[in-house]
């Protein structure tokens, strides 16, 4: 038996089996071709990443020919439209990315204010409190939320949440723009709840039962056990879950395109309209544009920023979750 395996691996040693020589050789050859195909297809994922990185880099470099890197990264003014209207190439349009970053951060902060507590509490409930029956009822709710396309969330934000935020804030005397960061952020937060919750649920469930028993054996209540023992033990994994949530929040597009604004205000007031990196990418690339104008190239520069930011967040998060799993496996 060992020889057969060796023959397949090495492909040269003659087989001891009864199969005729030619057929055996053909089989070995076929398997090697198939194995090569399998290995090649596993490269597609790498090629995708490389493709993303290269195309973003390439177009960004062309963008930086027209707009200096310093002006892009530290400029406080974003108004790419001006350049187009006056039919000038690049130089006079303002491509300062700071207002977009602030807007993205503001909406992500609102979203995580919703998704963090809701996601963690529901994960704790599912992992520690829910009976199997309650779990079989509660878990699908989160799975359905996870399956709803973001364009639907966006429409819901415009249809229900934005008017509600506006009316209720005006009732208490606040000035609110119709496309507030708050409305978009809250809806995005709900969208992210299942992401945070499912990872946190896994992570909490992976905390060894013996730690819980240790606490119960001392007379700790369930909430004391969760708060003092389980959560601190699960902390790195929970950090990973939250980071993946943040990564999702800054990369989310449709909710903000539909429910947040287009104008780049530099503000941290969630009742104001702000714009985000993704909104501007969509704005820059819709409509009939020449492929080479700085306006379209700017979208790639924004894309590169977004890619780098999410890459860093994802890698830290994946590392945290992975380390954590290894510790308790």
């Amino acid at each position: 038996m060992a020889q057969t395996v060796a023959a397949v691996r090495g492909g040269t040693r003659p087989s001891l089996m009864a199969a005729p020589e030619g057929r055996r050789a053909r089989q070995v050859l076929g398997e090697r071709v198939l194995l090569g195909l399998l290995a090649a297809s596993s490269l597609v994922a790498i090629l995708t990443t490389v493709g993303i990185a290269l195309s973003l880099l390439f177009e960004t470099l062309r963008f930086l020919d027209a707009v200096p890197l310093f002006d892009f990264l530290f400029g406080l003014n974003w108004s790419p439209q001006i350049a187009i209207r006056e039919d000038q190439v690049g130089s006079s349009g303002a491509f300062g990315v700071i207002p977009l970053l602030v807007g993205t951060g503001l909406i992500a902060a609102v979203a995580m204010t919703v998704a963090g507590p809701l996601g963690l509490l529901s994960a704790i409930y599912l992992a520690e409190y829910a009976s199997p029956r309650a779990r079989s009822f509660a878990k699908p709710i989160l799975e359905i939320l996870a399956g709803i396309p973001t364009v639907v969330y966006g429409f819901f934000a415009v249809l229900v949440v934005a008017p509600f935020v506006r009316d209720s804030s005006e009732a208490v005397g606040f000035e609110v723009s119709s496309e507030s960061a708050l409305a978009a952020g809250v809806v995005m937060g709900v969208m992210i709840v299942p992401i945070v919750s499912s990872i946190a649920d896994d992570v909490i469930s992976a905390v060894p039962q013996s730690l819980r028993e240790g606490a119960y054996g001392l007379g700790a209540t369930k909430s004391e056990t969760v708060r003092d023992i389980v959560l601190p033990a699960a902390l790195p994994g929970i950090g990973g879950a939250l980071l993946l949530g943040v990564s999702r929040a800054i990369g989310e597009t449709m909710i903000v395109v539909m429910a947040a604004g287009l104008s780049a205000h530099l503000t941290v007031n969630p009742l104001q309209a702000v714009t985000t990196v993704t909104v501007q990418m969509v704005a820059l690339l819709t409509g009939d544009q020449e492929f080479d104008s700085p306006k379209t190239l700017a979208a790639f520069a924004l894309g590169l920023l977004l890619f780098i930011a999410t890459l860093i967040l994802n890698l830290i998060a994946l590392m945290l979750v992975r380390r954590y799993r290894e510790r308790y496996d």
Binding site: P208, S210, L211, E213, G214, A215, Y216, G217, L218, G219, A220, T221, D228, I229, P232, A233
Partner: peptide
């Protein structure tokens, strides 16, 4: 809570909390 405070338990596998020595005993 009251029952388990009166009847303590030591387990088969040592299961110290992932805290300091002091905090384990103080918990």
């Amino acid at each position: 809570v009251y029952l388990r405070a009166r009847i303590g338990m030591v387990f088969q596998k040592p299961n110290p909390f992932p805290k300091s020595i002091h905090d384990n005993v103080a918990y």
